[in-house]
């Protein structure tokens, strides 16, 4: 098996699908000749030609709308929005069109479009390169929302997304592109080559959408996280010497609530961790679901950790980012309750 970072794994997923399915096209700003600002589509245009890997005008609205039209005409577009922070000009086309086409036409028309977009902070990107907008897509009926936390899942989930006949918003935590990140910016960077989930098969495989994964089994508390926060949460639990069960949600919507709730029923305690702002964040949905299904098993109030409810600041990145300290304090509160 090969060693890949997340960028290479995503590139490999698109390579595999461009090879297997002549209907797959990749489009977005800078994705063609240049290979993407994060190099995620590097080499693909050279290999598959400029009709399959297209540079586009700077118009997220146009990218999403053109993808819908292409999909209706039998193609399987994989669109890149260069940063999730730039997705809003395409939001109407996603919410009112892409998501509802199957429903409004009673299944006659549908658009199997995958929208890849780098999300999340920790890269000194300020408020225009750091957002985690998963909740505003989770609230939309008719799209699936996925966020991997490692190269193996990234490739398998992206292939599954491209093969899926429903539209998928595929959020890539850019802080994880080159290596796992436990929330401590002072430590030397760790490459994916040193991590077991950096082992990635070269060929075709899928990781199922709508399946969460227990990344660390434990008995004391269930920590529910996704994206970068999977690694931060695991490190925080370890620092406290807790036997925590850490679950990587992987698919925000449709949510695998069964895996989450089964775990909480065992541990009796639950902390939800995400990078996005807390108020109205996706953690609120998870919290409500866990409360409804696990109330009589809970020994402490469900905790939630997220970014502060402010725009993502530039100078205060590490005061803003929900790092190990914030997670650890929330865990201590949960462990001392009840």
């Amino acid at each position: 098996m090969a060693r890949m970072n997340m960028i290479q794994a995503l590139n490999s997923a698109m390579d595999v699908m461009l090879e297997r399915d002549p209907g797959v096209v990749v489009l977005g700003e800078d994705v063609g000749y240049f290979g993407g600002v994060f190099r995620t589509t590097d080499g693909l245009q050279r290999k598959y030609g400029e009709h399959r890997v297209l540079d586009t005008p700077i118009s997220e609205l146009g990218i999403v709308a053109a993808s819908i039209g292409m999909a209706v005409n039998g193609l399987r577009p994989v669109a890149e929005i260069q940063f999730a922070d730039y997705i809003y000009p395409g939001y109407d086309q996603i919410v009112s069109e892409l998501a509802r086409l199957r429903y409004r036409s009673a299944g006659e028309f549908y658009a199997p479009v995958t929208i890849r977009t780098p999300c999340g902070g920790g890269i000194r990107g300020g408020q225009t390169h750091s957002q985690s907008p998963e909740a505003i897509f989770a609230h939309v009926c008719g799209v699936k929302v996925v966020m991997p936390s490692n190269p193996y899942d990234a490739k398998g989930l992206l292939i599954a997304a491209i093969e899926d006949d429903d539209p998928v918003i595929f959020l890539e935590p850019k802080r994880l592109y080159n290596g796992p990140f436990d929330g401590d910016p002072g430590k030397p960077a760790v490459p994916w080559s040193a991590h077991p989930r950096g082992e990635v098969p070269e060929g075709h495989y899928t990781v199922p959408i709508s399946k969460a994964q227990i990344v660390r089994a434990g008995r004391d508390v269930t920590i529910i996280a996704y994206g970068t926060m999977v690694h931060v949460a695991e490190a925080a639990a370890l620092s406290l010497g807790l036997d925590a069960e850490v679950i990587d949600v992987r698919t925000i919507s449709p949510l695998d609530s069964e895996t989450l709730c089964e775990s909480v029923r065992r541990t009796g305690r639950c902390l939800i961790v995400h990078e996005a702002t807390r108020f109205g964040g996706f953690g609120a949905e998870i919290s409500a679901t866990v409360q409804e299904q696990c109330f009589w098993h809970l020994q402490a109030p469900i905790g939630r950790v997220g970014g502060w409810d402010t725009p993502y600041p530039h100078a205060f990145e590490w005061e803003y980012f929900p790092g190990q300290k914030r997670v650890a304090m929330a865990l201590e509160a949960i462990m001392s309750a009840g």
Partner: peptide
């Protein structure tokens, strides 16, 4: 679908760039 007439959204103008995407796909194919 059979008559090749796309679903009417009810939202305004959204079909305009979608038609362009459909035409791009026809050219790609």
């Amino acid at each position: 679908r059979q008559g090749k007439i796309f679903s009417i959204s009810g939202n305004l103008a959204t079909q305009f760039p979608q038609a362009v995407g459909w035409a791009m796909a026809a050219a790609i194919k």
